[in-house]
Simulated scan of single mutants.
Amino acid sequence: MTIEFRSVIDAMMSTPNRPAGATPPPIRLSQNEMPWQPAEVITAAMTQAISQTHRYPDYHRLAAREAVAASMGLTADRIAIDNGSGSLLHGLARLVCEPGVNGVYCWPSFEAYPAALGLAGASKTPVDIAENGAMDMDAMRAALTDETRIVYLCNPNNPTGGIVGAAEIRRFLQDIPSNILVVLDEAYREFVTDEPVEATLALLDEFENLVILRTLSKSHGLAGIRAGYSASSPRIAEALRRTSVGFALNSIAEAAVIAAFSPEGMAVAEERIATIVAERARIEAALADAGVSFLPSQSNFIFLHGDAADLLAGFAAQGVLARPFPNAGGARITVGLPAENDAVLSALV
């Protein structure tokens, strides 16, 4: 007899994007990473932390939480930090979901939402996004039922880059029952230019059922470190910390978080984000001039309409690796360094 997995596990099984041993194109613009190595202040802090890795890290992650809280104008009791924001969105599902309840999310969006709901035993309700690549908030409202316990809001949405403003998020929160946990996933918030980056933080004081998720993978270029954080009411933050895997934030990652939110670390991040935003505008202007169909983005990537296989083949010919989304009708390309973006444009215009 063989071990039988839960049915949800079989649905999650995936295959590699490329054949084993295949060499990817050299310009890697498929995973929304920042194109620079971490800031020197961060690498110095991580290097120093290596010498202390014979000791366990701080179980409560207090110093890292305090650094995050200070950057957001909050107190540390409202912050939870984990091994990437993906771990937190799974943890939030475990807090409120079980068989018989329901979770709602927009689609196409981040694949971790249905995975988290399925593993928590909840049923899943995907809602089509709007034509501009942002969440359709009216459709999200209509999808809620008496069984709904959690809603994931991806803003800006990945992979399409559209955004819903803070005022519309507030109206959504005002309209729905307060026993529904609303997870506002802001992995790409730092790249937003349509409104102030901090515009959504005021909502935390208005709505006890709101959790904001952010990550250091994008804005600080720390995708390989795996550090994400949440801001919420103290009650929700405490529940997340209590149910997190012990020592999930390793000591090197903790040192990186603290350094990232230092004045020097923030200055480097802001300069690099400004470069990506400027390059995003340059790419979009060139695409518009050439009549290439795309979705205007508020993130560090751009979604292009067309046959995904054809788009990827054109990019590969220029040495560029992009991410296909055939079910969404196109492909996503990360905004990189100017020379990398020139290669992208060469494939399209």
Results as ranks from 00 to 15, higher is better:
291 G>T: 11
181 L>G: 02
78 R>P: 00
88 L>C: 06
303 F>I: 02
26 P>W: 09
50 I>W: 07
56 Y>D: 06
349 V>R: 15
235 R>S: 13
59 Y>P: 03
268 V>Q: 12
133 G>D: 01
204 L>P: 08
12 M>Y: 11
84 G>E: 10
44 A>T: 13
159 P>T: 10
247 F>I: 05
117 L>H: 01
330 G>K: 02
71 S>T: 04
182 V>L: 04
131 E>N: 08
243 T>A: 02
112 A>K: 05
183 V>Y: 03
323 R>Q: 15
200 T>P: 03
335 V>Y: 12
131 E>C: 03
281 A>N: 11
216 L>K: 03
32 N>L: 07
17 N>A: 15
269 A>P: 01
232 S>A: 15
242 R>G: 02
206 E>K: 05
95 L>N: 02
6 R>T: 11
184 L>E: 00
147 E>V: 01
212 I>Y: 02
160 T>S: 14
214 R>T: 06
75 T>E: 15
85 S>M: 06
155 N>D: 06
15 T>D: 09
219 S>A: 15
56 Y>R: 13
22 A>L: 08
135 M>K: 00
327 N>K: 12
88 L>P: 01
198 E>F: 14
216 L>W: 08
302 I>L: 13
70 A>M: 08
146 D>E: 15
130 A>Y: 10
196 P>C: 14
320 V>N: 01
106 C>M: 14
310 D>N: 14
283 I>T: 05
222 L>I: 02
136 D>L: 09
323 R>I: 04
28 R>Y: 05
314 G>E: 08
247 F>Q: 10
23 T>R: 15
242 R>W: 03
128 D>N: 11
347 A>T: 10
123 S>E: 15
6 R>I: 06
158 N>H: 12
58 D>S: 07
276 I>Y: 06
149 R>I: 04
183 V>F: 00
41 V>M: 05
256 A>Q: 05
267 A>R: 15
187 A>Q: 08
130 A>E: 11
111 E>M: 11
155 N>M: 01
17 N>P: 10
203 L>F: 05
263 P>R: 11
309 A>G: 04
256 A>N: 04
314 G>W: 03
11 A>Y: 10
318 Q>D: 11
189 R>A: 02
263 P>W: 09
35 P>Y: 05
341 N>Q: 07
190 E>Q: 14
206 E>Y: 03
60 H>P: 00
169 I>D: 01
201 L>K: 04
275 T>W: 02
35 P>N: 07
340 E>T: 03
209 N>F: 15
344 V>R: 06
295 L>T: 04
190 E>P: 00
235 R>N: 13
131 E>H: 08
335 V>H: 09
124 K>L: 11
252 I>H: 01
205 D>W: 10
122 A>K: 00
50 I>T: 10
40 E>H: 05
49 A>M: 14
40 E>K: 10
53 T>R: 15
92 L>W: 09
14 S>G: 00
193 T>R: 14
48 Q>R: 12
238 E>V: 04
14 S>F: 00
187 A>H: 01
78 R>V: 04
100 G>E: 08
179 N>V: 05
324 P>H: 07
193 T>K: 09
297 S>P: 09
312 L>N: 11
119 L>I: 08
128 D>Q: 08
117 L>F: 06
326 P>I: 14
98 E>Y: 02
